[in-house]
Each structure stands twice: as C-alpha cells, then as structure tokens.
Nucleic acid binder design. Sequence first.
DNA 1: GGATGTCATATTGTCGACAATCCATCGGCC
DNA 2: GGCCGATGGATTGTCGACAATATGACATCC
Lengths: 257, 257
Amino acid sequence: MTSTVSDDFSEAKALTAVPHRVLSDEVADRLREAIVTGRFKPGQHLREAEISAALQVSRSPVRDAFAQLGHEGLVAIRSHRGAIVVGLTAQDVEEVYTLRASLESLAVRLAIARATPEDLSRLRELANRMPEAAARLSPREYAELDVAFHDLVYQAARHDRLYACWTMLRSHIFRFLLTRNLVNPDFSEVGHREHGELVETMAAHDTERALEMIRAHLEGAYARLIKGYVEPLDHRGDTTPHSSGTDPTTDAPGGGD
Amino acid sequence: MTSTVSDDFSEAKALTAVPHRVLSDEVADRLREAIVTGRFKPGQHLREAEISAALQVSRSPVRDAFAQLGHEGLVAIRSHRGAIVVGLTAQDVEEVYTLRASLESLAVRLAIARATPEDLSRLRELANRMPEAAARLSPREYAELDVAFHDLVYQAARHDRLYACWTMLRSHIFRFLLTRNLVNPDFSEVGHREHGELVETMAAHDTERALEMIRAHLEGAYARLIKGYVEPLDHRGDTTPHSSGTDPTTDAPGGGD
DNA sequence: GGATGTCATATTGTCGACAATCCATCGGCC
DNA sequence: GGCCGATGGATTGTCGACAATATGACATCC
C-alpha cells in the first residue's frame, strides 16, 4: 500500500524527488527568464517557429512551453493567434497582490500546523541569506531569495492545490521584484527582517500574530511596489485585453460548461 | 481603465465573445465528462493512443487535452508515464474546500463592489432555477446550477487570476456534487435557499454578513459532503504523492477558524 | 470617401512517424 | 532463495509536413 515506501525509506525522507525535465521544461525556463528580465517586452508576439528556430528544437516543445507560461499567466494565449507577453499594468499588480494575500494567509495557517523542523530551519537559512545578498547589491539574488522563502512557506503548508495557485503568482512576483530592484535597488528595506520574524512566530505556533505579520508584510511589499511605479509600457493599451471586456476565458484553460 | 473600445461599442457590450473551440477543447470536454460522471475511475491510466483511437483524432489534441485536465487537477501527469485519474480521497475534498473558502471569500468581497445589475439578476435567476431542478429530481441539473451560480460570483469579482484559481477547483466541486447527488439525492436541503439569500445580501452591499454567509454555506456543503462519505477507491493511495510524505498527525487545518 | 467583399499571407492546429524513456519480466549470480 | 543487472514491450516525447484559420491588404461598389 502507500505506507510500504515510507516504511522502508524512513531515513531517506529528507531526499527530494529529482524532477524529470523534458525539452518543453527547458524551453519554458528560457522563455520565462527572457520575460521576467524584460528581454521580451509586454505585448510582444511570440511566434512558435521563431522560438523553435532560435532554440533549435521542434515546435512541439515550444508549444507545450507556451501552455506552461500561459498557465503561469506570463503570456496570454488566444486561439490561432499565438502567445503574447502580458503587461505589468497597475491592475495586474493589484490582482496578484490581493490574491496573494488570501492564498498566503491560508498557507501560513497551514504551515504553522504542518511545518517540520527541517522546513523551519530551511526558512531560517533563506531569511539569513538575504542580508548577504543585499550587501552584495545583487538584485537578482535578492529577488530569488525572497521568492524562495515564500515558496517554502507554501510547500510547508502541504497543500498541493494551494501550491498550484501560488505557481500562477510566483513568476509575476519575481518579475515585479526584479523590475523594481533593477530600477530602484533599495536593499535597506525591512523585507528580510520581516521574514526572520515570521519564521519565529510560526515556530512559536502563534497563528494570530503570524497572520497579521504576513498581511502587513504583503501590504508593505505591495505599497513599495506601486510607489513610484510607472507603467513600463502604456503606449499600447490593448496589452491587457481582459481588463475591460467581459472575457473570462482569456487563456481558455477551463473551457467547460 | 481601457475604456477606448467600450466607447464605440457601448450598445454591443451585452455580447459575449464566441469561444474559439479547437479539437483539444472538444477532447478535454469528453474526458472531463467521463471523469466527473465516474466512467473513468480514479487511478485509471489514460493512454494517449487509446483515447485518440476512440475519438478518431491524432494524439496531439489528446495530449493538449491531458494538459488542460492536469491543469484542472482532474488527472495527474507524470513525465513519460502519462495521465492518471486522480482520486476522491477525504484529503482531496478537504484541500478543495479549504482553498475554496479562501478564494470565495475574496470573490464575494470583490463581487459586492463590482457586480453589475445584470450580474445580480443572472445570479437571482440561477438561484430561482434550483428549486425547479430539485423538483425534477435531476442531480445533474442541480449540480450544474450550483456550480454555475458560484461561477458567476467569481466572474462578477472581475479578477482574472482569481477566476483561474477557481477553474482549478470547479471540476472537482462538480464531481463531488454529482457523486453525492447520485448516491444520496437529498434535494430538500438548504443549499439553494442560501444562494438566494447570498445574492440579496450582496446586492445590499452588506459585506460582513455576506462573508459570514458564504463561509457558513461552504462549511455546510463540506459537512454534507463528508457525511457518509465513503472512499470510492482507496486501494491506491499514491495518487497524491505529495500528501503521504509527512505524518498526518495534524491534518486538521486551522482548527476552529 | 467610406464601407464591404475577396484574396493572399502568415501563423497556428493537427497529423503520422520516429526516437527516447520507463516498466515489467526474465535470467544470472552470490 | 533472494538480489542484481540485462532485455523486450509498451508508452510518451519529439520531429517535420500538411491542413485549417485569422489577419491584413487590396479592389470594388455605393
């Protein structure tokens, strides 16, 4: 049954499964990197043939990669019209952060109940490495540590569907952080201090306080993000076609009913 | 926002975009139908060649359909090992409902602020049609109306990413409702009454009360679901590989939240 | 001059074949 | 007899070619 594996490998529990990477995953990584770093600009049309020629692979993995990115919300896929890099409008930022506030509250609540000592020590380690990254003035590393910390909180919640929702937000958060840190690299902020405090509050099983902390943390991050935020690209207002029009099936994943 | 388009087509706003359906959408519909109605059992391995032969299409649209269903959480896709119909374990039900409670609270809050009169009237219509379906003793129609009502609440929230999260839950909810209604068709419940009351509370902009109502509504639905719930298939519990990793000593989520 | 119908082009959707990978079975070895 | 490595069959991942569709330009008509 299910317990047969865990019985025999109880001491190997710390091991994490090696991800089976296929070509489409690799392609998705390259594309994601190009989008979050801004090499692919919002509104840009990604052509399957172009990408497949540049990466020297067939169109199939490129197509699958587009589906993954569409799923993460980095590109909008419309039937017979391909993938378009989505924008960074103020509404997008607001959507991401309002949703994130809801999701991460649940994540913190669950993580307090379910996090293992290993989870907590890894969270502490990530929180401790942020000041180093700040000292090195590395916006990239700083953003990666920030996202990795929150990712671990979601993982500690042991809730696969919640984690899947977070996956749809994570790339956006990373893009926001990277964009902001590159434009205005203010590393002297309180972000990483709040991380450390949050871990200890979670470790102390103080749910009420932890929820208030994560709420304040995200609100602060949101405020820092929109402060002095200029639309990176507003000369074409149709970059977010789903904003005004009643078009609930932008990427048409559900389709149903 | 982007009101440029709506200026010229103000009278055409009532029109809804025609969905561009391709083969993979059709295939996904057939497969989804087979899964939610139980014709495809949990744990069953869906082979691309088999499906493509049965539906007389190529493997490509079947493959895309698998990706869609995997995205919705109806099947688990593992690299080089194909798609497996996911289970209906008690933990799955708990995951869906804890996440749903978070998402739908946000949806109701936003919908109160953003719902148009047309949204509200459509919600009223759906709520009113549920007693008719109950009178007809149609479990299928009853479940469809239930899901359609909540779907409209999410649409009224005007939050694309929130709606995308709901998409990952919707098929599960429908499957739960259908399974339960077919096994125990208790139509004399309070579900549809609560729908009507929720609409009016939302129309009155009473956010606090509406949030409490949706919380109670979902909690009641969850309780009705797990009451007398028998695991339809628990001889292979490895359908959720992430779950059994830790001890289930503290599987109660936030306690009495 | 503006709107409408037609057509060419570019791009995506679908197909069948080949290659890579996984799983089960079998055989050899200690 | 049980454990380990090799082999075969089945299944998915990738590829290149063809078909279907949306888009934009052009010509035509009012």
